[in-house]
């Protein structure tokens, strides 16, 4: 069981100590920052994304995230990257200047398409990094408490937030169990000669069924046992539950809230001046580079 994406790792960093509610809020805010529009000047956009990248990488370093794990979790993205590349290159939009291929019927492909793809992919990578920071510094339990807290206003409309939170926490709790189970079943099937890595698509689909069917069966038996065990210990979905861990506000939380507010403010400011007023940041900051445009 190696390299589960976002597996909780126990360290004692500032980010680990931080309140899960604030981490969730921060995650959403920085994701918003990642996807804000930053004008039409590519050089500006790249510079701003680079700054964001540096911020997020330093957060990762503070949280002591294993970069090897991070790169391994990016491997699954390649299919999406190719898809985005095709869409972006073959459907030109925005201001295109640099011609890549020009067909005889007047249909042209631009280098800007590739650049757009790169930026979208970079943003997605940042997003993955952010979620990884959250999941590897916060126990699943804490994440659920955080979500439950954010859902609590819905209680006014009699929305069963506790039930939702319990469902989420159970789902999170059983991810490692199911992975372990899947691993075990895979080993058993490998001993019967299944090769999960080689073979054509049709063969692969066939070999995957040998994993999925037993996994589903054991999944149902686990959930059956679990529901009985919960009922035996007097679980009532609508009853009021006390909790073992009480979330408290600490100095770290204040610092991180301030950090997020400043970050959000700064990037919204950047977004407004570049997008709305068309200010070229690089030229404003470094007048010497005047004339360098892309």
């Amino acid at each position: 069981m190696t390299n589960i994406f976002g597996k909780y790792t126990q360290y004692n960093t500032i980010i680990h100590k931080c309140d899960p509610r604030i981490k969730i809020l921060g995650l959403i805010l920085i994701m918003v920052i990642c996807f804000l529009p930053y004008g039409s000047n590519y050089m500006n956009q790249l510079a701003i994304l680079a700054v964001l990248g540096v911020v997020i990488v330093s957060l990762m370093i503070i949280a002591k995230i294993n970069f090897l794990d991070f790169f391994k979790s990016l491997k699954v993205m390649w299919f999406m990257v190719i898809f985005l590349l095709i869409i972006n290159v073959f459907i030109p939009y925005g201001n295109n200047e640099h011609v890549m291929i020009s067909f005889s019927n007047g249909y042209t492909l631009y280098w800007e398409g590739v650049l757009n793809t790169f930026m979208v992919v970079f943003r997605l990578i940042l997003m993955i990094a952010l979620t990884m920071i959250l999941t590897s510094t916060t126990t699943p339990m804490d994440i659920t408490y955080g979500f439950e807290w954010y859902l609590s206003p819905l209680k006014i409309f009699k929305f069963p937030t506790q039930v939702v939170a319990m469902t989420i926490s159970l789902a999170l709790r059983f991810i490692p169990t199911l992975l372990e189970q899947a691993n075990r079943i895979m080993k058993a099937q490998k001993s019967r000669g299944v090769d999960y890595n080689r073979g054509f698509l049709s063969k692969k689909i066939k070999s995957i069924t040998t994993l999925i069917v037993p996994l589903l069966v054991s999944c149902f038996s686990i959930s059956d046992d679990l529901s009985l065990a919960m009922e035996a210990r007097g679980y009532d979905p609508y009853g009021k539950r006390s909790r073992y861990r009480i979330l408290k506000f600490s100095i770290y939380d204040l610092v991180s809230i301030l950090f997020f507010i400043i970050l959000l403010g700064a990037f919204i400011y950047l977004s407004v001046i570049t997008n709305h007023y068309g200010v070229n940041i690089i030229e404003t900051l470094f007048p010497l580079t005047e004339g360098v445009t892309f």
Partner: peptide, 27 residues
């Protein structure tokens, strides 16, 4: 893997086919 047959703990979890004979023939 053919030479060394391995029966794991709780091997009943490896069953997947719709008939017993098919499942045994799988190996």
């Amino acid at each position: 893997r053919k030479k060394v047959g391995m029966v794991f703990q709780f091997p009943e979890y490896q069953l997947f086919a719709d008939t017993i004979l098919k499942d045994v023939m799988f190996g």
